[in-house]
């Protein structure tokens, strides 16, 4: 399958929270756990107020910091979305710090983050949130067509909100969740160009495999040397004992 993307059109979101409920039910989340958070955002000065509902949910970055930092492979990219394999998660919590958007949380000792419903999408179904959205604010499809749809909608929205734009076209290699925003990204607290720190790559690609490799090698090398060295030392001890016995005999006769 190609690259999929989720379209999130804040111009169409009516804040009904149906997606949150469908997600919680469909993904069998724990009480209090949620992959989507929605808040109402009011901007401007009275009387020139504009409001919109803002989704806080995984952006499914192409160059995902969480995937880069995850030491167990619990997080991975599947068809453009950032999938989660809970069985592999060790609960280290590194993804919580790594994500530039502050998305993953820890619940019951494991990661809690939108899985992209990749189990459903791989069978040709839509994610729970997309299936449920009554206003057409959420869509899933090939990234290219989602992108052109997002552009169309942003153009329409720009007639009312001059700063309306698409977010996610280029950020972090291109996000797998394309947002249609009625305003500048910064107005929603979204960084213009977030970065994955090089220390994450240095650690996961360099230091971590190296330290684990050397640790393993040292165990292996000593295990091999052990058999040889122990035999050598016992031979040496027998020789020393024989020498000592001879020496004693020599001393006795010399006195």
């Amino acid at each position: 399958m190609g690259q999929n993307a989720i379209l999130v059109d804040l111009g169409q979101c009516i804040g009904c929270q149906a997606c949150i409920v469908a997600c919680k039910t469909g993904r069998e989340l724990a009480p209090g756990e949620a992959y989507i958070h929605i808040r109402e955002d009011v901007r401007g000065r009275f009387p020139n107020l504009t409001g919109s509902f803002v989704h806080h949910r995984c952006f499914h970055c192409a160059d995902a910091a969480c995937v880069a930092v995850c030491p167990t492979g619990a997080l991975s990219k599947v068809d453009g979305l950032t999938a989660v394999d809970l069985a592999k998660c060790s609960g280290c919590g590194y993804c919580v710090d790594a994500c530039p958007y502050g998305i993953p949380e820890m619940v019951d000792g494991h990661v809690s983050k939108c899985t992209g419903c990749t189990d459903l999408t791989q069978e040709g179904q839509e994610p729970w949130c997309v299936q449920t959205c009554p206003s057409g604010a959420l869509k899933l499809g090939p990234r290219e067509s989602m992108l052109s749809l997002a552009r169309e909608r942003a153009a329409l929205l720009a007639k009312r909100f001059t700063s309306a734009q698409v977010y996610g076209e280029t950020q972090l290699g291109g996000l797998g969740a394309l947002f249609v925003l009625p305003d500048e990204p910064l107005a929603f607290g979204l960084p213009e160009q977030p970065q994955v720190p090089t220390t994450i790559t240095a650690w996961q690609r360099g230091v971590q495999p190296l330290t684990q490799g050397i640790t393993g090698l040292s165990v292996l090398a000593t295990a091999l040397a052990f058999v040889f060295a122990r035999r050598e030392h016992h031979r040496e001890k027998r020789a020393l004992a024989a020498q000592a016995a001879q020496g004693e005999a020599g001393d006795d006769s010399g006195r």
């Binding site: 710090d97 790594a98 994500c99």
Partner: peptide, 26 residues
Amino acid sequence: LKGSLGATWLPVMAMLHDVSMLAVTV
């Protein structure tokens, strides 16, 4: 400091921990 180290310094501390772990283990 987890949660306040940030995405740059958390890996630095983790690298130091890894290398120390290597030293201890070897």
